[in-house]
Design a binder for these strands. Structure first.
Length: 517
DNA sequence: TCTACCACGTG
DNA sequence: CCACGTGGTAG
């Protein structure tokens, strides 16, 4: 598996820094030098180029990446463990932005974990249109986003292709690359407009293979050691015995787990200490693909509701970056976000400029998705016709997200295709942008300009995205996307439109990023 | 391979 | 208490 680690992340990026606190960031990374400078790239258009994004707890991500990060996906939806949190700088304090994430295929391979390592077993299944997870605070002014870490911890991954909750749908045993998109939400920049300004950042070290159960024990141990919610599993062996006994019904002389050891690493991951070494316990070789995410395809977006606290990252919390146990962050994260006091977010979502009324689109996200969603939920599923019909009307969606959709014609290969691969966007190589190089920051490695998006076809209109006319696209690879399923129109219009809405601008985001071409 | 359930932890 | 997030295990 792991090889992937690097593989996943492979490449590039180990840079350091966490971003969170600027101050510390520097030392954060301990040994890890691996970093390649590369990653940080960002390309943004329209003034968005000044935006910098730093991955919080990068060190932890790098640790996982060194082993080959695995993220559990369940029907109900599972959070990512190292939570995806970023520090964003360079935003205009007064301008409103929508921050959202998507998770795109890192390559078009299917993996298997055997012999204690990951290897490619075949071609990836066709990815469907990806969904977008709009940060619950969106849209919010730059001052808000910059005030503290922006956490996407509540984002959940599922393997249920018919997921009604708005979670991001992934295929098990496939490698993915999470990406962050920052879209200017000003009125003048309606999503639909061609000049929508946005940028995309992706940190190679956050790439992972989706699994229904952990494959690499090292990953399990890292999760247990670092995720507060998994404390019950710390303690290693002893614990295990106890637990097992209990599970089985027996009590067992239980020993109070007095010695819960945080450490357990059973297999010992190499990386711990030195990154370099460990980095690839397994040679990335094989598949190694350079995966790079291709850009994406269209997707649906949901916005988390803004709950109070959301995620969190408190600015403060982050403190220690590297501390190893990341302890606080995830669950514990306080909310920081929401303090009313500060920015009081518009509780009622101010429907941003984008859309007046809140279209379900991004724009209003803040607003509660509830409503929005309920109105229209659409999730586009690839196979819309197959099953999804049912719920279209009401989205069961929890209050948390608003769906937006975009549709993507996605081309599996896109990555490759468009960017020649080299892929890897990441690295510096990427064609598009210059490497950034910010040493400290984690850099985003790739960004696209809005224009690109626009051309791709997506437009968000009022909140929702309109499905791009496909035309522009490369088309699906036949195999993958099953054109059959979706006929050309891949998207079924009806579904998508649900959202519709609104008007002139709204806020939908629909990035389509693919780079492509 | 994936699901359901469990015990345990956080909050 | 509860809800919910964890990984393990059984199936």
């Amino acid at each position: 598996m792991a090889n992937g680690g690097d593989a996943f992340g492979l490449a590039e990026r180990p840079d350091s820094d966490c971003v969170d606190s600027p101050k510390d960031s520097k030392h954060e990374n301990p040994p890890i030098t691996l970093s390649r400078p590369t990653s940080p790239q960002s390309t943004c258009n329209q003034g968005m180029d000044a935006i910098k994004v730093f991955l919080h707890e990068r060190e932890l991500w790098t640790k996982f990446d060194g082993v080959g990060t695995e993220m559990i996906i369940t029907k109900a939806g599972r959070r990512m463990f190292p939570g995806y949190k970023v520090k964003v700088t360079g935003l205009n304090p007064k301008t409103k932005y929508i921050l959202l994430m998507d998770v795109v295929p890192a390559d078009d391979h299917r993996y298997k974990f055997a012999d204690n390592k990951w290897s490619v077993t075949g071609k990836a299944e066709p990815a469907m249109p990806g969904r977008l997870y709009v940060h619950p605070d969106s849209p919010a002014a730059g001052a808000h986003w910059s005030r503290q870490l922006v956490s996407f911890q509540k984002l959940k991954l599922t393997n249920n292709h018919l997921d009604p909750f708005g979670h991001i749908i992934l295929n098990s045993m496939h490698k993915y690359q999470p990406r962050l998109h920052i879209v200017k939400a000003d009125e003048n920049n309606g999503f639909g407009s061609k000049n929508t300004a946005f940028c995309t950042h992706s940190f190679p070290e956050t790439a992972f293979i989706a699994v229904t159960s952990y494959q690499n024990h090292k990953i399990t141990q890292l999760k247990i050691e670092n995720n507060p919610f998994a404390k019950g599993f710390r303690g290693s062996d002893d614990m295990e015995l106890h637990r097992m006994a209990k599970l089985q019904g027996k009590d067992y002389p239980v020993v109070p787990r007095t010695a819960p050891r945080p450490r357990v690493c059973s297999s010992g991951s190499p990386y711990q200490g030195s990154p370099g070494a460990d980095r690839s316990p397994y040679p990335p070789a094989h598949y190694a693909a350079p995966h790079h995410p291709h850009l994406q395809h269209g997707q649906q977006a949901y916005q988390g509701t803004k709950r109070k606290v959301d995620d969190s990252c408190a600015p403060e919390d982050r403190q220690h970056l590297y501390k190893k146990p990341y302890a606080g962050s995830s669950p514990s994260q306080p909310e920081s976000y929401y303090h009313p006091s500060s920015y009081a977010p518009p509780p009622p979502p101010p429907p941003p400029p984008l859309s007046g009324p809140p279209p379900p689109g991004l724009s209003d996200s803040p607003y509660r998705a509830d409503m929005g969603q309920r109105q229209a939920c659409m999730f586009a599923s690839p196979e819309p016709r197959l099953e999804e019909p049912s719920w279209s009307y009401a989205c069961p969606v929890p209050p948390s997200m608003t769906p937006v959709e975009s549709y993507p014609p996605y081309s599996p290969h896109a990555p490759y295709s468009s960017s020649p691969r080299g892929s890897r966007p990441g690295g510096a190589a990427h064609h598009g942008s210059p490497p950034l190089g910010e040493p400290n920051a984690h850099a985003p490695y790739q960004t696209q300009s809005s224009e690109a998006l626009a051309r791709r076809g997506h437009h968000l209109h009022g909140g929702r995205l309109t499905p791009p006319p496909l035309r522009g696209y490369p088309r699906y690879p036949s195999a993958a996307l099953s054109p059959p399923l979706y006929p050309s129109a891949a998207l079924s219009p009806p579904l998508y439109h649900t959202l519709e809405a609104h008007g002139p601008h709204g806020g939908g985001v629909a990035p389509e990023w693919s780079s492509a071409s």
